[in-house]
Design a protein around this nucleic acid. Structure first.
Lengths: 176, 176
DNA sequence: ACGGACTATGCAACCCGTTGCAGACGGGAT
DNA sequence: ATCCCGTCTGCAACGGGTTGCATAGTCCGT
């Protein structure tokens, strides 16, 4: 129900093909919203049927044709409409928290291994985000418009990963 | 795929009926793992079929009968097995982040309203967590075993909500 | 000419979770 | 008696997401 609008936002920033979007959702956008290529293709097809996006087939040299999607005025209206409606808070789901809470019922060392693995993962993401921030937004105080929006979302990623790293570190220290 | 194990953990802490679990998942556990009662009933039924849990019908005075579920040795083995297998990192999904990123395509004031609403929500959760921590774990350094595990998961909630509050506050200030 | 690798799109089946509705039981109010 | 309310359980339908597999085009190496 919301992948539609995530795709609209992405396509408003830059028209793209299904595979392009898949790559984008595996990179910057994907850190805040994941999606497989099948899901993306399916939603693109549905949105085309609803007239939210339109397709241009682009022949490529040395590659199969590409179907580039662009947002229609109707799609922009749908996006604006969604932006104006309040979003219910997203319920949280953390397998790792469940494991932590139930660690006494199994192999504690294995749970600690899982925690360590997640810690390095979050640390890596954090490093990556910080690198992106330094490279793309060296002077945040000067930003406005879309740049500012993108920067602030990236800040959300940084703060989130920082809290995860702090949490898992605290967990490991408590069980040291 | 993982609600099964969340229920097993909850039932290992304390055998309960479907409705009991629904309430627990709406309270403490639910802050880290949400579930509707229908889903809980369905999974309980499936786990009973698999021999992971067993049922005792408990007649109650002034109320309908209650089906109390308890974990079987087979269920404990399944839980231990799950605890020993690594968990893939959970992909993130944030409607709000998508709205922030796409705010330029619609009514910015409405997006700011959504952000404010989420902020008060996160602030309320944070306050609640802190209250729980103060009440139930006044001296964290003395904890061990299951108490320590539960405390550390609660700490995760606190750190998470703190980061969310910080993020949304930063967002509002940047758009002031 | 042929197999392998990469790009690009897509179908079909399945799993999980949500939503809407319903039914059975007892208590309390009128 | 009746009606509504709260408890407790459950079914059925729907929709989103994932997994596995399929296909078509083009380049490259041999």
């Amino acid at each position: 129900m919301a992948l539609d609008h995530a795709l609209l936002v992405a396509l408003c920033e830059q028209p793209a093909s299904g595979l392009d979007l898949t790559k984008r959702f595996g990179r910057s956008i994907g850190f805040f919203w994941s999606a497989t290529h099948q899901q993306i293709y399916r939603v693109l097809g549905r949105m085309e049927g609803e007239g939210w996006v339109e397709v241009t087939v682009v022949p490529q040299s040395g590659r199969p044709d590409k179907k580039v999607y662009d947002v229609t005025p109707l799609g922009r209206a749908a996006l604006a409409d969604w932006l104006a409606t309040p979003t219910p808070p997203t319920p949280l789901r953390s397998d790792l928290a469940v494991k932590m809470r139930g660690a006494a019922n199994g192999d504690r060392a294995a749970v600690l291994d899982s925690v360590r693995a997640h810690l390095v993962d979050h640390q890596a993401r954090l490093d990556h985000y910080r690198q992106l921030a330094k490279r793309d937004y060296p002077d945040p105080s000067e930003l406005n418009g879309t740049d500012l929006d993108q920067y602030l979302v990236l800040r959300g990623g940084i703060l989130l990963e920082e809290s995860q790293v702090a949490w898992l570190t605290e967990y490991l220290e408590a069980h040291a």
